[in-house]
Amino acid sequence: MTAARRGLGFGFWLSISWLIVISLAAIFAPWLPLKDPGENYIVAGARPPYGPSSTHWLGTDQDARDVFARTIFGARTSLVIGFGAISFGIILGGTLGVLSGYFRGWTDRIASIVMLILLSFPGLILAILITALLDRGLATIAITLGILGVAPVGRLARASTLVFAERDFVTAARAIGSSNRRIIVRELLPNVVIPMAALSLLGMAIAIVAEGGLAFLGLSVDEGVTWGKLILLGAGTRDLERAPWISFGPISMLFLTVLALNYAGDRLRDYFDVKDITL
């Protein structure tokens, strides 16, 4: 009996739509009819921050800069950091995991030790260390967060590779003369990539939140705005009481994006799980 195949569901497509909208907005931000994120829109006779109004939908910050525009521009950096971090994690961790799961032996032992060290090294300290020593450019932040993702991604990749490498279709592939590269690319990757894709969405969410954490320590990117930095700006106790809108914009954007990433990741994993357990 074939298990009834449910679709990915409305929630998944809603999440994906949100992610597409926010990505497009981030990419095309300079051409959108937005306020200038750097401009101080000071109104004579009133002290910023100004609350939400028809001119400033989400209000302005203490320097009278438009929160909505800054949030959209902040998405540029935050999404790039999230995407860059997880790409780094997937490429390095995934390669390490798949190779060690497939070849076992020495490859596996060395890779396992590397991952163990990465896992046991306190992530925050590592981030502080790197960002304190190197210039805090976009790439540095993304790679720093990416390094933290290498071990979890690598472990998942190794575990799922182990499961599939045991299966007879891999033995059969070897018997028909497939090279190791072909077995990895044609037989194993298509199976391993699904749980990895699900994890990468979750990982991207984690990286975006982690950037916020770094921002609080003053260790996020030097130049430009990120969601983390924007939230920090309005997160002083007095500001929160007086002008909650300053962080409300970036917080809700961060919340919705992370929620969408998590939800889509979960659904994706469940959806592809079903196929394996039929029969």
């Binding site: 299966r167 007879d168 279709f169 033995t171 059969a172 070897r174 018997a175 028909i176 003369g177 037989e187 298509p190 199976n191 196929k275 394996d276 029969l279």
Partner: peptide, 18 residues
């Protein structure tokens, strides 16, 4: 090996599910 081939016990696991 192309002249020696093998079939296995578990028909499901013998084929790549994807």
């Amino acid at each position: 090996r192309t002249r020696v081939q093998m079939i296995f016990q578990d028909p499901i696991s013998s084929l790549n599910p994807r």
